[in-house]
Amino acid sequence: MKRLYAIVLAVLLSAFVLPAHASLKIFATVPEWGALAQEIGGEQVKVYTATNGLQDPHRIDAKPSLIAQARSAQLVVATGAELEIGWLPVVIRESGNARIQPGQPGFFEAARYVTMLDIPAVLDRAHGDVHAGGNPHIQTDPRNLLKVGEALSARMAEIDPANAAAYQSGYKVFADKLRSAIARWEKEAAPLRGVPILVQHRAFPYLQNWLGLKEIGSLEPKPGVEASSAYLAEILAQQAVQPAKMVIRPAYQYDTPSLWISERAKIPAVTLPFTIGGTPEAKDLFSLYEDTIRRLLKGWQG
């Protein structure tokens, strides 16, 4: 028993004695926040992204590797608004890391800094997998990145004051670049304004709000609830009265429902990257929106 104590003590001591890493360690739940933190922090940060662009962010396992990464993180950057509720609370609790607990500076929720859409008036699970705080897929509008980035750079500066100036200037460079890109994208996407679309999952209210796309139906009768064939037939019937130009889906979702509609309604099924890595072209925050608009324009042209 004494020897066991000695071993445990030795391991503990080594943990304290080991030199602290120079860079700020960030645990990002989804690729967009990982990329944003990297844009702001540059060389000063070491970013770990818990998921990739082809994973359903609602349904992630609290894997041992995630808990191990959260253990040493100085900052967790999550979407919030209950997107990660099925796994992140467990990862954070199991990590034994005091810095990243909710309420600490090391816990950052992006959804707090943007205007949320689709906040349900009534909370009832009979309405499907609704999120009480509003639709959490805020990254589909790049203007939200400006707000989140500003708050995130301030938070990074708070946690790592030595590099505060670098984070501020990192954000400024990124924001300037993004602002001019947004102006360019808005011009490119101008023809999409008012275009009626169908969505496979209500994943794009922010994108629709940004580009003025008009959602006239969802292939899920209720969020997270799969369509029955009767419901899809209904959507198809509606197409005769109120035709949509295309049906869009996030890349992580399987394509069966949108292909079904696409084939019968003779409208293009458009796969949008949704986040970095969702499509091969969406490599960073800029190509993410470029690819999104390119695909939408292609769908619109038919």
Binding site: A15, E94, S95
Partner: peptide, 13 residues
């Protein structure tokens, strides 16, 4: 009482 070791591999005692 549980302790999670630092490092990229999950190791908990």
């Amino acid at each position: 009482a549980r302790w999670l070791a630092p490092g990229d591999t999950y190791f908990e005692v």
